[in-house]
């Protein structure tokens, strides 16, 4: 058997191994049926208290000097107002819809983004258009769960192989981070245009300030913008 045969065998082996190798999965999916940028009225849903998840509450309580029972609603309201401001300023979204809970959207479903990454989404039923009074927006940014905490990784939360593994918490958190599950929803066809999970993190500076949280959220929303290809000229 010559070296050529050996080479062919090795190539076949490499092929076999690459089949098993993990592909780096992206954290967002675009619908190929909607290649164009969204046009028309853009709306966005609010972040309800049920959609906001705070991780490492004690540190927020300690640094922000808020009562323990107030920290969740206070931060949820703050992030929601930041979201509203960003959507109005950067997306030109005129219509603000209530949160998914208030809209009575169906229970959350797990949708595959890519590979083993699944995100929980709450999408309206096919055939049901979201409306605000008389207006029926063409495109809606559906805001899903937003997680604010320390050292968060989208993959370790939404990749089903990693999601339920226990990792020893570090001595000290190193970054302040946030994740947001979002969907760009075509309200006319009741179909997603894109969905995914955006993430942002920044080195943690103690004591934590509201300013740092605001800056982080801004970067998080810009990541949504980047992933959804909404106005790609805006660089995060």
């Amino acid at each position: 058997m010559g070296t050529r045969a050996l080479r062919i065998l090795l190539a076949a082996l490499a092929l076999a191994l690459s089949g098993c190798a993990e592909k780096a999965a992206r954290l967002h999916r675009a619908n190929d049926a909607f290649p164009d940028s969204p046009a028309g009225t853009i709306a966005f849903t609010s972040l309800g208290p049920g959609d906001f998840i705070l991780d490492g509450r004690d540190l927020f309580v300690e640094d922000l000097k808020i009562y323990s029972e107030d920290v969740h609603p206070a931060l949820a309201a703050r992030v929601d107002s930041l979201l509203g401001k960003w959507a109005e300023e950067n997306l030109g979204a005129k219509v603000r819809l209530p949160s998914a809970d208030s809209l009575g959207l169906p229970e959350s479903e797990k949708r595959r983004v890519e590979g083993r990454v699944f995100v929980p989404v709450r999408w309206p039923w096919p055939g049901d258009s979201l409306r605000s009074g008389e207006t029926v927006p063409d495109v809606v940014l559906l805001v899903g769960e937003l997680t604010l905490g320390f050292d968060l990784q989208a993959r370790s939360l939404y990749d089903y192989e990693l999601a339920n593994t226990y990792t020893e918490p570090g001595e000290k958190p190193e970054t302040l981070s946030a994740l947001l599950v979002w969907t760009l929803w075509d309200n006319r066809l009741q179909q997603y245009r894109a969905y995914g999970v955006a993430q942002a993190s920044a080195p943690l500076v103690r004591p934590l300030s509201f300013g740092a949280i605001d800056a982080l959220c801004k970067r998080l929303f810009l990541d949504v913008q980047r992933q959804s290809r909404l106005y790609p000229e805006i660089e995060p």
Partner: peptide, 9 residues
């Protein structure tokens, strides 16, 4: 023979 082996692999 080499081709056969590669095909088998």
């Amino acid at each position: 023979r080499a081709l056969l082996l590669a095909a088998l692999a």
